[in-house]
Protein backbone atom coordinates (compact mmCIF):
# COMPACT_ATOMS: atom_id res chain seq x y z
CA UNK A 1 0.00 0.00 0.00
CA UNK A 2 1.33 3.46 -0.87
CA UNK A 3 2.10 6.02 1.81
CA UNK A 4 -0.83 8.17 0.75
CA UNK A 5 -3.45 5.47 0.99
CA UNK A 6 -1.95 4.29 4.27
CA UNK A 7 -2.27 7.82 5.68
CA UNK A 8 -5.87 7.98 4.47
CA UNK A 9 -6.71 4.66 6.07
CA UNK A 10 -5.09 5.70 9.33
CA UNK A 11 -7.08 8.95 9.38
CA UNK A 12 -10.33 7.08 8.77
CA UNK A 13 -9.63 4.40 11.40
CA UNK A 14 -8.80 7.09 13.98
CA UNK A 15 -12.00 8.99 13.12
CA UNK A 16 -14.01 5.84 13.90
CA UNK A 17 -11.98 5.11 17.01
CA UNK A 18 -12.11 8.67 18.35
CA UNK A 19 -15.90 8.80 17.99
CA UNK A 20 -16.18 5.64 20.05
CA UNK A 21 -13.66 6.62 22.70
CA UNK A 22 -15.00 10.08 23.39
CA UNK A 23 -18.66 9.08 23.38
CA UNK A 24 -17.84 6.06 25.52
CA UNK A 25 -16.00 8.28 27.98
CA UNK A 26 -18.95 10.68 28.18
CA UNK A 27 -21.40 7.83 28.76
CA UNK A 28 -19.17 6.34 31.44
CA UNK A 29 -19.76 9.55 33.42
CA UNK A 30 -23.31 8.26 33.96
CA UNK A 31 -21.91 5.30 35.92
CA UNK A 32 -23.32 5.69 39.46
CA UNK A 33 -25.21 8.83 38.33
CA UNK A 34 -27.97 7.21 36.26
CA UNK A 35 -31.61 8.16 36.88
CA UNK A 36 -32.19 4.66 38.28
CA UNK A 37 -30.23 1.46 38.65
CA UNK A 38 -31.18 -0.27 35.39
CA UNK A 39 -30.36 2.81 33.33
CA UNK A 40 -27.11 3.28 35.19
CA UNK A 41 -26.17 -0.25 34.14
CA UNK A 42 -27.46 0.22 30.59
CA UNK A 43 -25.47 3.40 29.93
CA UNK A 44 -22.35 1.90 31.49
CA UNK A 45 -22.75 -1.21 29.33
CA UNK A 46 -23.07 0.91 26.20
CA UNK A 47 -19.97 2.86 27.26
CA UNK A 48 -18.14 -0.45 27.60
CA UNK A 49 -19.18 -1.50 24.09
CA UNK A 50 -17.79 1.76 22.71
CA UNK A 51 -14.56 1.30 24.62
CA UNK A 52 -14.16 -2.24 23.29
CA UNK A 53 -14.80 -1.03 19.75
CA UNK A 54 -12.22 1.71 20.26
CA UNK A 55 -9.60 -0.83 21.28
CA UNK A 56 -10.14 -2.82 18.08
CA UNK A 57 -9.73 0.33 15.97
CA UNK A 58 -6.76 1.80 17.87
CA UNK A 59 -4.98 -1.55 17.75
CA UNK A 60 -5.50 -1.57 13.99
CA UNK A 61 -4.25 2.04 13.74
CA UNK A 62 -1.14 0.94 15.63
CA UNK A 63 -0.37 -1.72 13.06
CA UNK A 64 -0.82 0.82 10.26
CA UNK A 65 1.70 3.11 11.93
CA UNK A 66 4.13 0.32 12.66
CA UNK A 67 4.17 -0.53 16.30
CA UNK A 68 2.22 2.14 18.16
CA UNK A 69 -0.01 0.78 20.90
CA UNK A 70 -3.71 1.42 21.46
CA UNK A 71 -2.76 3.37 24.60
CA UNK A 72 -0.76 5.85 22.54
CA UNK A 73 -3.87 7.05 20.71
CA UNK A 74 -5.93 7.44 23.86
CA UNK A 75 -3.33 8.85 26.21
CA UNK A 76 -0.63 10.61 24.25
CA UNK A 77 -2.45 12.82 21.79
CA UNK A 78 -3.60 16.39 22.32
CA UNK A 79 -7.00 17.95 21.67
CA UNK A 80 -6.41 18.94 18.04
CA UNK A 81 -5.20 15.42 17.21
CA UNK A 82 -8.56 13.89 18.13
CA UNK A 83 -10.96 13.70 15.21
CA UNK A 84 -14.18 12.70 16.97
CA UNK A 85 -17.46 14.22 15.83
CA UNK A 86 -18.27 17.29 17.95
CA UNK A 87 -21.53 15.82 19.23
CA UNK A 88 -19.66 13.04 21.04
CA UNK A 89 -17.65 15.44 23.22
CA UNK A 90 -20.51 17.63 24.46
CA UNK A 91 -21.28 17.36 28.16
CA UNK A 92 -24.02 14.87 29.02
CA UNK A 93 -26.57 17.49 30.03
CA UNK A 94 -29.72 16.09 31.54
CA UNK A 95 -30.85 12.54 30.81
CA UNK A 96 -32.95 13.69 27.84
CA UNK A 97 -29.84 15.25 26.27
CA UNK A 98 -27.89 12.02 26.63
CA UNK A 99 -30.77 10.08 25.07
CA UNK A 100 -31.11 12.58 22.20
CA UNK A 101 -27.40 12.22 21.48
CA UNK A 102 -27.67 8.40 21.64
CA UNK A 103 -30.53 8.53 19.17
CA UNK A 104 -28.72 10.83 16.73
CA UNK A 105 -25.46 8.92 17.03
CA UNK A 106 -26.83 5.35 17.05
CA UNK A 107 -28.88 5.92 13.89
CA UNK A 108 -25.70 7.30 12.29
CA UNK A 109 -23.52 4.42 13.54
CA UNK A 110 -26.01 1.80 12.39
CA UNK A 111 -26.04 3.23 8.84
CA UNK A 112 -22.27 3.67 8.77
CA UNK A 113 -21.55 0.13 9.98
CA UNK A 114 -24.06 -1.39 7.55
CA UNK A 115 -22.01 0.13 4.72
CA UNK A 116 -18.66 -0.58 6.37
CA UNK A 117 -19.50 -4.30 6.45
CA UNK A 118 -19.00 -4.21 2.68
CA UNK A 119 -15.51 -2.67 2.98
CA UNK A 120 -12.71 -4.25 0.95
CA UNK A 121 -10.53 -3.89 4.05
CA UNK A 122 -10.99 -7.18 5.93
CA UNK A 123 -10.22 -5.70 9.36
CA UNK A 124 -12.77 -2.93 8.88
CA UNK A 125 -15.49 -5.22 7.54
CA UNK A 126 -14.83 -7.66 10.40
CA UNK A 127 -15.00 -4.80 12.89
CA UNK A 128 -18.27 -3.55 11.39
CA UNK A 129 -19.89 -7.00 11.49
CA UNK A 130 -19.05 -7.22 15.18
CA UNK A 131 -19.94 -3.64 16.15
CA UNK A 132 -23.27 -3.53 14.34
CA UNK A 133 -24.70 -6.19 16.62
CA UNK A 134 -23.91 -4.04 19.63
CA UNK A 135 -25.18 -0.92 17.87
CA UNK A 136 -28.53 -2.61 17.23
CA UNK A 137 -28.99 -2.75 21.01
CA UNK A 138 -27.85 0.86 21.44
CA UNK A 139 -30.28 2.04 18.81
CA UNK A 140 -33.11 0.13 20.36
CA UNK A 141 -32.28 1.59 23.77
CA UNK A 142 -32.20 5.17 22.43
CA UNK A 143 -35.40 4.65 20.44
CA UNK A 144 -37.30 3.17 23.40
CA UNK A 145 -36.35 6.07 25.64
CA UNK A 146 -37.08 8.72 23.04
CA UNK A 147 -40.58 7.24 22.71
CA UNK A 148 -41.02 6.98 26.44
CA UNK A 149 -39.90 10.54 27.19
CA UNK A 150 -41.42 12.17 24.10
CA UNK A 151 -44.76 10.46 24.48
CA UNK A 152 -44.66 10.60 28.29
CA UNK A 153 -45.64 13.44 30.59
CA UNK A 154 -45.83 17.09 29.63
CA UNK A 155 -42.56 17.70 31.45
CA UNK A 156 -40.69 14.76 29.83
CA UNK A 157 -42.03 15.72 26.39
CA UNK A 158 -40.88 19.30 26.73
CA UNK A 159 -37.41 18.31 27.98
CA UNK A 160 -36.95 15.67 25.27
CA UNK A 161 -37.95 18.19 22.60
CA UNK A 162 -35.50 20.72 24.02
CA UNK A 163 -32.68 18.15 23.94
CA UNK A 164 -33.50 17.20 20.33
CA UNK A 165 -33.50 20.89 19.37
CA UNK A 166 -30.34 21.79 21.32
CA UNK A 167 -28.22 19.03 19.81
CA UNK A 168 -29.44 19.24 16.23
CA UNK A 169 -26.84 21.86 15.23
CA UNK A 170 -24.08 19.33 15.99
CA UNK A 171 -25.47 16.50 13.86
CA UNK A 172 -24.21 17.76 10.48
CA UNK A 173 -20.61 17.41 11.64
CA UNK A 174 -21.05 13.63 11.97
CA UNK A 175 -21.31 13.47 8.19
CA UNK A 176 -18.25 15.61 7.46
CA UNK A 177 -15.56 14.05 5.31
CA UNK A 178 -12.05 14.84 4.04
CA UNK A 179 -10.17 14.60 0.76
CA UNK A 180 -8.24 11.60 2.07
CA UNK A 181 -11.43 9.85 3.02
CA UNK A 182 -12.88 10.40 -0.44
CA UNK A 183 -9.95 8.42 -1.88
CA UNK A 184 -10.91 5.51 0.40
CA UNK A 185 -14.51 5.70 -0.78
CA UNK A 186 -13.30 5.40 -4.36
CA UNK A 187 -11.21 2.37 -3.38
CA UNK A 188 -14.21 0.64 -1.74
CA UNK A 189 -12.65 0.81 1.72
CA UNK A 190 -14.69 3.53 3.42
CA UNK A 191 -18.40 4.23 2.98
CA UNK A 192 -19.53 7.52 1.50
CA UNK A 193 -20.45 9.09 4.84
CA UNK A 194 -22.11 12.33 3.58
CA UNK A 195 -24.40 10.14 1.45
CA UNK A 196 -25.82 8.56 4.62
CA UNK A 197 -27.49 11.84 5.60
CA UNK A 198 -30.79 11.25 3.76
CA UNK A 199 -31.37 7.83 5.33
CA UNK A 200 -30.38 9.24 8.72
CA UNK A 201 -32.90 12.09 8.46
CA UNK A 202 -35.65 9.70 7.44
CA UNK A 203 -35.02 7.33 10.32
CA UNK A 204 -34.67 10.05 12.98
CA UNK A 205 -37.80 11.73 11.67
CA UNK A 206 -39.81 8.52 11.96
CA UNK A 207 -38.73 7.92 15.56
CA UNK A 208 -39.46 11.53 16.54
CA UNK A 209 -42.86 11.41 14.90
CA UNK A 210 -43.81 8.27 16.79
CA UNK A 211 -42.59 9.96 19.98
CA UNK A 212 -44.89 12.96 19.24
CA UNK A 213 -41.78 15.15 18.87
CA UNK A 214 -40.96 17.64 16.14
CA UNK A 215 -37.98 17.20 13.83
CA UNK A 216 -35.82 20.34 13.93
CA UNK A 217 -35.70 22.51 10.82
CA UNK A 218 -33.31 21.00 8.26
CA UNK A 219 -32.03 24.53 7.53
CA UNK A 220 -30.74 24.95 11.11
CA UNK A 221 -27.17 26.32 11.13
CA UNK A 222 -24.69 23.49 11.64
CA UNK A 223 -21.50 23.65 13.66
CA UNK A 224 -18.55 22.07 11.83
CA UNK A 225 -14.95 21.45 12.78
CA UNK A 226 -14.10 17.89 13.73
CA UNK A 227 -12.43 17.10 10.39
CA UNK A 228 -10.37 20.31 10.41
CA UNK A 229 -8.92 19.82 13.90
CA UNK A 230 -11.31 22.25 15.53
CA UNK A 231 -13.28 21.25 18.58
CA UNK A 232 -15.66 22.68 21.11
CA UNK A 233 -14.10 23.82 24.39
CA UNK A 234 -15.26 20.59 26.02
CA UNK A 235 -12.69 18.22 24.50
CA UNK A 236 -9.85 19.57 26.65
CA UNK A 237 -11.66 18.77 29.88
CA UNK A 238 -12.34 15.19 28.82
CA UNK A 239 -8.76 14.62 27.78
CA UNK A 240 -7.38 16.26 30.90
CA UNK A 241 -9.29 13.80 33.04
CA UNK A 242 -8.65 10.80 30.82
CA UNK A 243 -4.92 11.41 30.43
CA UNK A 244 -4.03 12.76 33.86
CA UNK A 245 -2.61 9.56 35.33
CA UNK A 246 -0.58 8.53 32.29
CA UNK A 247 0.87 12.03 31.99
CA UNK A 248 1.67 12.21 35.69
CA UNK A 249 3.41 8.82 35.60
CA UNK A 250 4.71 8.41 32.03
CA UNK A 251 5.39 4.83 30.99
CA UNK A 252 4.19 3.43 34.30
CA UNK A 253 2.71 -0.07 34.25
CA UNK A 254 0.17 -1.49 36.66
Amino acid sequence: MSNNSNAALLEFVLRLGDNNLILGHRLSEWCSNGPFLEEDIALSNIALDYLGQTRILYTYAGTLEGGKTEDFYAYERFEHEFTNALITELPNGDYAHSIARQLYYSVFADLLLTELMKSKDATLSGYAAKAIKETAYHLRHATDWTLRLGDGTEESHQRMQKAIDDLFMYTGDMFATTEKEKSLVAAGIAPDVPALKAAWTKKVESVLKEATLTMPDAATWQMQGSRTNRHTEHIGYIIAEMQYVTRAYPGNKW
Binding site: E38, E39, I41, A42, N45, L48, D49, Y137, R140, H141
Partner: peptide, 9 residues
Protein backbone atom coordinates in the same frame (compact mmCIF):
# COMPACT_ATOMS: atom_id res chain seq x y z
CA UNK B 1 -37.95 -7.66 30.24
CA UNK B 2 -36.78 -5.12 32.81
CA UNK B 3 -33.75 -3.90 30.89
CA UNK B 4 -31.87 -4.94 27.76
CA UNK B 5 -28.64 -4.38 29.66
CA UNK B 6 -27.75 -6.52 32.65
CA UNK B 7 -24.99 -7.62 34.97
CA UNK B 8 -22.58 -8.29 32.09
CA UNK B 9 -22.44 -7.15 28.46
Amino acid sequence: MISNFGSTA
